[in-house]
Amino acid sequence: MKKAQFVKAGQMKIVDADMPKIQADDDVILKIVRASVCGSDLWAFRGLEPKEENSENSGHEALGIVVDAGPAITTLKKGDFVIAPFTHGCGHCAACRAGFEGCCLSHDDNFSSGYQAEYARYQHGQWSLIKIPGKPEDYTDAMLASLQSLSDVMPTGYHAARTARVQKGDTALVIGDGAVGLCAVIGAKLRGAKRIILMSHHEDRAKLGREFGATDIIEERGDDAVKKVMELTNGAGADAVLECVGARQSTQQALQSARPGAVVGRVGLPHDSKFDLAQTFYRNVIIAGGPASVTTYDKGLLLKAVLDGEINPGKIFTKSYTLDQIQQAYQDMADRKTIKSLIKF
């Protein structure tokens, strides 16, 4: 089969690889229907974090067809069309029962990789895999794109809203206009935010943010952006802050833009080892967030919202590629020529 491989910073390639096999009783083998490039994949591609050369791709977002399953799998059968969450919760530990399967206590291999490929082995599929009604051919390309977003980016955006404790009538601030930030706008709207402020420096992303529910756009950067938040909130700050970048500046902006007693929901993968918690103490700002609860959100809310046409997060995929075009898919995202790259099989 064909599979993408990380060669070195700035370079991806397609290689021939062995077909994946069942290795554990709760494994599921998937024929990939859609995959995508995540913003977190770009850290190594841009050379901003170490990754072994000629190693497995970090792709972790997919839709697939079940082609084989281990003997412990009773919830799915061959031919089922599924969302493959990037986390592999068990469904019964304390974390999963609380709706935080991104931190599942049963598995030490809770995160996906290698899904930019024609086939993939999905571990611990009994509870975490999400069956989609029908078959891929029953859906339009646009609907398949929205379903693909449910494997990571849309639940991650919703997780920012949930962990920031967005309530009906709140003013929510979203920091980051990438795919996660745009999905966080959708998440904040679903939870009833009355006002959604999006920090965006790109016209195409700001336009999509408004379509998703943003009421205000802040184009300023750094301290000027924080000042603008304060102007828009009459000096109080936002009721909830959704931090969707993970950089030092975005985290600082989040803390400085939150009103006293507000919650900052962080889903941007942190890339700063130093963090001064003292600055939050005298403002009573609460910090929350982490890996998203994909299975919980999809089963409980998001899959139905997509199928019913209530939300259309697939619009974040502004360019599509074949697997053979994986280098271009990465490069275009790195160069901001697309918001998010969709891989079609």
Results as ranks from 00 to 15, higher is better:
residue 78 K to H: 08
residue 204 D to W: 10
residue 169 G to T: 06
residue 234 N to R: 14
residue 122 Y to N: 12
residue 295 T to V: 07
residue 162 R to I: 04
residue 165 R to K: 13
residue 135 K to S: 15
residue 100 F to K: 08
residue 302 L to G: 10
residue 304 K to A: 10
residue 223 D to N: 11
residue 264 V to F: 03
residue 231 E to P: 09
residue 200 S to T: 11
residue 130 I to E: 01
residue 272 D to I: 14
residue 213 G to W: 03
residue 30 L to V: 14
residue 302 L to P: 04
residue 165 R to T: 10
residue 51 K to R: 15
residue 200 S to K: 05
residue 288 A to I: 07
residue 15 V to I: 15
residue 121 R to M: 00
residue 269 L to R: 12
residue 34 R to A: 05
residue 235 G to C: 05
residue 329 A to C: 06
residue 12 M to Q: 13
residue 166 V to D: 02
residue 308 D to F: 04
residue 242 L to P: 11
residue 275 F to G: 09
residue 80 D to I: 12
residue 204 D to R: 15
residue 242 L to H: 07
residue 308 D to S: 07
residue 287 I to D: 00
residue 39 G to L: 01
residue 345 F to L: 14
residue 169 G to I: 09
residue 339 I to D: 03
residue 316 I to V: 15
residue 210 R to P: 00
residue 250 S to A: 08
residue 248 R to T: 15
residue 220 E to H: 03
residue 47 G to F: 07
residue 323 L to R: 02
residue 115 Y to S: 08
residue 167 Q to Y: 02
residue 39 G to E: 01
residue 79 G to C: 06
residue 27 D to W: 03
residue 261 G to I: 02
residue 33 V to K: 08
residue 306 V to A: 07
residue 294 V to H: 02
residue 8 K to V: 01
residue 278 A to L: 12
residue 17 A to F: 08
residue 22 I to P: 07
residue 88 H to K: 15
residue 31 K to R: 15
residue 117 A to D: 01
residue 84 A to Q: 06
residue 244 C to T: 14
residue 13 K to W: 02
residue 327 Q to E: 11
residue 275 F to H: 13
residue 230 M to D: 01
residue 38 C to W: 01
residue 183 C to S: 14
residue 21 K to H: 11
residue 58 S to P: 02
residue 132 I to R: 03
residue 86 F to A: 01
residue 327 Q to S: 05
residue 190 L to G: 13
residue 22 I to N: 09
residue 279 Q to K: 15
residue 66 V to E: 05
residue 31 K to L: 07
residue 333 M to H: 10
residue 343 I to M: 09
residue 78 K to V: 07
residue 225 A to R: 01
residue 197 I to A: 04
residue 195 R to C: 02
residue 22 I to F: 04
residue 344 K to W: 14
residue 31 K to T: 14
residue 191 R to P: 00
residue 228 K to V: 04
residue 283 R to Y: 08
residue 340 K to A: 11
residue 266 R to S: 15
residue 202 H to R: 14
residue 247 A to W: 01
residue 193 A to P: 05
residue 199 M to W: 00
residue 179 A to H: 00
residue 116 Q to W: 03
residue 208 L to I: 10
residue 167 Q to H: 05
residue 302 L to W: 00
residue 118 E to T: 11
residue 184 A to P: 04
residue 201 H to T: 14
residue 9 A to P: 10
residue 122 Y to Q: 09
residue 56 E to T: 15
residue 170 D to W: 04
residue 259 R to M: 12
residue 3 K to C: 10
residue 294 V to R: 02
residue 119 Y to T: 06
residue 72 A to Y: 03
residue 243 E to L: 06
residue 96 C to W: 03
residue 91 G to K: 10
residue 209 G to A: 10
residue 259 R to H: 08
residue 105 L to Y: 11
residue 166 V to H: 04
residue 274 K to S: 14
residue 345 F to N: 15
residue 239 D to C: 08
residue 26 D to Y: 03
residue 292 A to F: 00
residue 19 M to W: 03
residue 272 D to W: 13
residue 298 D to E: 07
residue 103 C to M: 11
residue 176 G to Y: 06
residue 320 S to L: 12
residue 97 R to L: 12
residue 217 I to V: 08
residue 270 P to K: 06
residue 170 D to G: 05
residue 322 T to K: 13
residue 326 I to Y: 02
residue 43 W to F: 14
residue 126 Q to R: 13
residue 246 G to P: 12
residue 1 M to G: 12
residue 250 S to D: 02
residue 110 N to F: 14
